[in-house]
């Protein structure tokens, strides 16, 4: 957890991807992804369904082994790290999975405080109350903590997943579609929370989203992935009016344009 907020353009990027490639069987998913995420920034990754956004994030987390390319975090090559270094790095990273991936054998409060407990930063006796606090932050009542994840609605599971991801106040946080499945108001609340993580904690946030309003709110920078490559990067505020035909079509959700031509084949 860093408390200082380094200038966006300073030195090495927090995360740097170069030539990232991944093929599943015969399906080429990533075909040379290049991406820089500056420290203390909100990066939004856009792209069609199945374009490899989740695979990109999972590669950075070390959950998927890329076939080629380099991944650097704080200037250090993470693919050549040994297990101990990798685990130390993961201690500083938070992740919200697309399907929340809550542990259904544990009550909600243990899910939320799982990493704090694993790192022995909190005792079990205190964890229940701590979980209540974090749940309040994501707009859930503390009493939800005693339920099992299977008793929650999809949107509630998502928010518990979010609570779990930010519980340790990590340095880098990945959000895989944080607002999908939430009502618009709750979506805005969650966006505010993500912005807070970046602004107040100085965290670096990488979010995947299909929601343009949300992308403009949580992103400083946006990147669009298409056919396994990053085809555009730019300020998130300009989304919908970037001058890049592909991005504008995507942002406005239009049927006609360079991307629909690809889909029709």
């Amino acid at each position: 957890m860093s408390s200082t907020l380094p200038p966006a353009s300073a030195g090495t990027p927090k995360i740097r991807l170069r030539g990232l490639k991944k093929t599943f069987g015969t399906k080429k998913v990533l075909d040379g992804v290049d991406l820089d995420v500056q420290a203390g920034q909100g990066m939004v990754i856009l792209g069609g369904s199945g374009s490899g956004k989740s695979v990109t994030i999972k590669s950075i987390l070390g959950l998927i082994q890329p076939d080629a390319g380099t991944i650097e975090i704080d200037g250090r090559d993470v693919l050549s790290m040994n297990r101990r270094e990798r685990e130390a790095l993961n201690d500083r990273i938070g992740m919200l999975f697309q399907n929340a991936a809550l542990f259904d054998s544990l009550p909600v409060w243990e899910n939320v405080c799982f990493k704090l407990l694993a790192q022995k930063r909190i005792t079990r006796a205190k964890a229940r109350d701590k979980a209540g606090e974090i749940l309040n932050q994501v707009g859930l009542d503390g009493s939800v903590g005693d339920l099992s994840p299977s008793e929650l609605s999809g949107g509630m599971q998502k928010r518990v997943g979010l609570a779990r991801a930010i519980a340790t106040q990590p340095d880098i946080i990945f959000f895989d579609e944080p607002t999908t499945g939430l009502d618009p108001i709750m979506g805005a609340v969650i966006d505010g929370l993500i912005v807070d993580c970046v602004k107040k904690l100085g965290a670096t946030a990488v979010s995947i989203t299909h929601d343009m309003a949300s992308a403009r709110r949580i992103g400083d920078t946006a990147a669009m992935i298409h056919k396994g490559r990053i085809v555009w990067t730019g300020p998130a505020a300009t989304l919908g009016d970037t001058g890049n035909a592909m991005v504008d079509q995507f942002a406005r959700g239009e049927r006609e344009g360079p991307i629909s031509m690809e889909l029709r084949k």
């Binding site: 999972k58 987390l61 070390g62 959950l63 685990e87 993961n90 201690d91 990273i93 938070g94 992740m95 999975f97 697309q98 399907n99 991936a101 809550l102 542990f103 259904d104 054998s105 799982f114 990493k115 694993a118 790192q119 779990r164």
Partner: peptide, 21 residues
């Protein structure tokens, strides 16, 4: 069945990101 379900619902990946082998 239990571990397999955890695998296909990303719970095993989640463990890794939560400082747990």
């Amino acid at each position: 069945a239990e571990i397999g379900t955890m695998r296909v619902t990303d719970q095993i990946d989640a463990l890794t990101t939560l400082s747990t082998n």
